[in-house]
């Protein structure tokens, strides 16, 4: 396997379910470890920070939390970067979307990922300071780790 893969767990582990992406990344690391081809990082960043992280990788997997209109806590989603909307005027410089970050990186001549896969867990509470997940979200963490390991063809130790 020559492809350089970066798995980014996004979130904030002191804001309850907001840390879901980070817990998934930790679960993948626990099961697969890291190899020269796979890096697993935890981050609490928006788009401009993501640019720094993603530059130089061919494939990036982002794991984050999400709140949808009709979702139930623990629902798992796969999202295309294109579905995140067009690059647009953000309401804050720290909240650039992933697409703008990639486009910006490419303009600057960085090697930006050819593919970005985004996975997300529907969450219940991201506004209470707490270091624990709500039950439905906690249950989804190993399930999403399974899905990403399978999708990315990552090998678990015998």
């Amino acid at each position: 396997m020559d492809t350089k893969i970066l798995i980014i767990g996004l979130g904030n582990t002191i804001l309850s379910d907001d840390g879901a992406g980070i817990y998934v990344a930790r679960e993948i690391r626990k099961r697969c470890g890291t190899t020269p081809h796979i890096a697993i990082v935890e981050a609490s960043l928006g788009g401009i920070g993501l640019l720094d992280l993603m530059a130089g990788y061919q494939k990036v997997v982002i794991v984050d939390s999400i709140k949808t209109k009709d979702g139930s806590p623990g629902d798992i989603f796969r999202i295309n970067v294109e579905d995140l909307g067009d690059p647009s005027y953000p309401t804050g410089p720290h909240f650039l979307d992933v697409r703008t970050a990639v486009e910006l990186g490419s303009k600057f001549g960085y090697t930006m990922p050819e593919t970005i896969d985004i996975y997300a867990v529907e969450i219940s509470d991201n506004t209470t300071f707490s270091e624990t997940l709500t039950p439905g979200v906690e249950k989804a963490i190993p399930e999403l780790a399974d899905l990403i390991i399978e999708d990315c063809g990552l090998k678990q130790p015998e």
Binding site: I66, T91, G92, F95
Partner: peptide
Amino acid sequence: AEMAFRAYDPCLGCATHTLPGKMPL
């Protein structure tokens, strides 16, 4: 209206990073 708002560069309970990464208004 946003230009008035943006001048202050306010933080909007911004510790969360829930997708899609744009802070909506």
